[in-house]
Amino acid sequence: MMTNGDDAVEVVPVRHVGRYVAGFVVAVALAMLVHTLFSKVPTGQVSCHATAGARHCHPITNWRFGWNVVFHYFTSREILSGLLVTLELTAIAMAIGISLGLLIAIMRLSHNRLVSATAWVYTWFFRGTPVYVQLLFWFNIAALYQTVTFGLPFLNVTFAHINLVAFFTPFNTAVVGLGLNEAAYMSEIARSGLISVDEGQIEAATSLGMTRSQTLRLVILPQAMRVIIPPTGNEIISMLKTTSLAIAVSLVELLGAATNIYSANYEIMPLLIVASLWYLIVTTVLSTGQFYVERHYAKGALRTPPPTPIQRLRNDVRGIAAKFASGRSTARAS
């Protein structure tokens, strides 16, 4: 209630008719979706049984989306071990992507032209070709080189010797393919973070006598994180789903496990739902983690940190409750 001098004036809120209509339409659409998701269909068979001498027959129905099958396979050993492979692959490929991406970003900013050009070419190549093709490439490279030897060309110096045939197992192939590809994207994200840090910060660090590497580690990177983390969270979530391409190198991950099962029992939709539900669950967990990491690195950048989801929920509930309370009092007043 607003007061205007001595006379109390009632404030009538605007009625948003459009919002009510939109809300109604969406509610109906949602109800239809839920209805069809949980509808049952006849199987064509009937089940008959005799009660008190009379024979009763009724058709047998099944969940249209095979929820019983979904439930049966959701925690089956094959699906869970596929999920584990997906999680491991995501973690290792992202670890490679982030560390190599950071290195490439730092190389891009190097004063040495050869170093920065090399970094540019890397990004150009790995972003410019489909990741599926890259996976197939690594899958077949062992046919080209059975072994590789790292050393100085034309000199008799050897650093390392790798048997590629033994190294490129399906899992390692997927790790290399996805990790190297990810590094190209991560390098652009890291670079945008590094150049977002004010030049004055670098001058201040330098004038304290910090070396270039100290300035990078202690001053630039921690501040660049604020810019780097949100898109990196997206990259992790995106990687989680991109791992399903590892089917190309015959790695059995989450989707591969589902495929294996449905190619035997033809329950295609329920098993796709099983895989999708797991992807959704992991994505939800990752998004929550991302929020807290972002909050951590926002320290000092904002005068007051943003609320946690729980705080926000509490505020929303409080806001709605207050609205109801005031709405009821206006209703009573009129």
């Binding site: 004010d198 004055g200 910060q201 001058e203 001053v219 921690p222 501040q223 320290k299 000092g300 950048a301």
Partner: peptide
């Protein structure tokens, strides 16, 4: 412009 380290 002071140039204090914003994250510290």
């Amino acid at each position: 412009r002071f140039n204090l380290f914003q994250h510290l």
